[in-house]
């Protein structure tokens, strides 16, 4: 049973690398921001899977805070890019 979670964790790590390719290659700045948002989503998912694999509930709290901070950061970057700030 733990094997399936570990495999999912490895798959998500590979997907994070795949999104990082777009983060490095993206032709414009908003491209990179969108890729960063996808990386944040993947990190939240893998953090929750890590809570199951390690059997430590604290990772779920960490995932909540991470999602909240990534949303606030995304809003600030968007406002800054639109030159409204």
């Amino acid at each position: 049973m733990t094997g399936a979670w570990t495999i999912a964790l490895v798959v998500l790590a590979v997907l994070i690398l795949l999104a990082l390719v777009r983060l490095l290659r993206g032709p414009s700045v908003p491209d990179r921001v969108v890729a960063l948002d996808a990386v944040n989503t993947l990190v939240v998912a893998s953090m929750i899977i890590l809570a199951v694999v390690k059997k430590q509930v604290i990772f779920v709290d960490v995932a909540i805070v991470y999602a909240l901070l990534s949303f606030v950061g995304l809003l600030f970057i968007a406002k800054y890019l639109g030159r409204e700030m």
Binding site: P30, V33, D37, I64, A67, G82
Partner: peptide, 23 residues
């Protein structure tokens, strides 16, 4: 977390898309 994602993912992508179109 599910509720939070359902609330914030549309808002965030809307803001990024708007900023990208404006620039």
């Amino acid at each position: 977390i599910i509720l939070f994602f359902l609330l914030t993912a549309p808002i965030g992508s809307h803001m990024i898309g708007r900023a990208a179109y404006l620039t």
